[in-house]
Design a protein around this nucleic acid. Sequence first.
DNA 1: AGGCACCGTTCAGGTTGCTGTCAGATGGAC
DNA 2: GTCCATCTGACAGCAACCTGAACGGTGCCT
Lengths: 223, 223
Amino acid sequence: MRILLVEDDAVLGMAVRDQIVADGHSVDWAQRIADAGDAVRVAAYDLVLLDLMLPDGRGLDFLKARRVAGDVTPVIILTARDQISDRIAGLNAGADDYLVKPFDLFELSARIRAVGRRYGGNPNPLVRIGDLDIDLAARTLRRAGKPVRLTAREWALFEAFVQRPNVLLSKAQIEEHLYSFSDEIESNTIEVYVGRLRKKLGPDVIETVRGLGYRLGVPVGAS
Amino acid sequence: MRILLVEDDAVLGMAVRDQIVADGHSVDWAQRIADAGDAVRVAAYDLVLLDLMLPDGRGLDFLKARRVAGDVTPVIILTARDQISDRIAGLNAGADDYLVKPFDLFELSARIRAVGRRYGGNPNPLVRIGDLDIDLAARTLRRAGKPVRLTAREWALFEAFVQRPNVLLSKAQIEEHLYSFSDEIESNTIEVYVGRLRKKLGPDVIETVRGLGYRLGVPVGAS
DNA sequence: AGGCACCGTTCAGGTTGCTGTCAGATGGAC
DNA sequence: GTCCATCTGACAGCAACCTGAACGGTGCCT
């Protein structure tokens, strides 16, 4: 894979660059948004690793601009833990995953592999589940041919299920996936959102395993 | 599975304990090595999650002592990121795997599942018994092609049998695997649950050996 | 600036089903 | 036949979950 690293911290940048190379990928390293913008105009990347705090602007604005421009390259954002809601904001802006600084290089490699698996071997990340047609890259969804709109939070939850088909997800795991440490929820928010997905996608899409959590269900009659 | 968690950090301990329970296992939580030592003398665990830095000593020394004493219970060590040497030392001391703090709950669940399968004698999560198709990773079960739903407790019991095929399990052993110290049962609960499994899976799936216990049976006519 | 639509979250009350106990029935061993 | 290990149906308690509604914040439009 060809990876664009956008990170102004020289020490971290070198470590990440070296790990990417050690993993057998190629990497271009931009320390400013302007350089990143130049890079994506002249090269096709398989993945962008994007810091959120850069000397010439916010990584999120860069990402949003790329998405508006139709660029669907997978993006992993690099975010500090104490930046409230940056992770969700990043995901809302179109990021595919995130790494929380400080992260270790094993985790970096694992995330690159995971994102690569998701998109690298499958240039057209379309998923079909029952009567749902899902485009994970474009974040679009159709049910029986009709477009369904999910809010950012609904999409994040839905994606958690689709990324782990057949796996039972506890509510704590779902919460961990959807919220940062500083964003803890106090109520039955997960249940409410599961209910919302059911309302939009059908009552059997998500199966409750009482006392344990939820799992993507297969609607009756599906192959 | 019955799991012993040895962790002094209360916040992490609670999160891990709750996830273990959400995964359908039973758990005893010790915050000191001395308590862990007491626990392993009284109960048989399927897995130990072992922090390395404890208020009354090093987890590694506890592990070494257990191994010298002949205890082969699988152990996952919990180690901080900046103690890479501890990971290697842990593996050398006889640990089976490790988790690097901070770790997410998905990874915890996956590790527990992987270690549990490996030492259940069969690393393959897909098991076929008679007309039952079992996916131990996804917690799904089909009987003659039809999905069967088991409650958390039913699954835990069923899993105990599947992980020890052909082994006669006494009721006390079953109870020990299914319930932690704080969850002791008073009645004929094991019998009731065996009956529930039989109702869902067929009368011959579990064989009674009167006065001794139960064993996974092979349904008549199975290959 | 004000109004409105939308979104995320909480709240509160209703619904559901899981769990374990109990008591009587059944069946095996002697 | 007796004894007792095991099975089975029923049930109560409780907490996990669902659902409708309200509230506050945000962004957009006039």
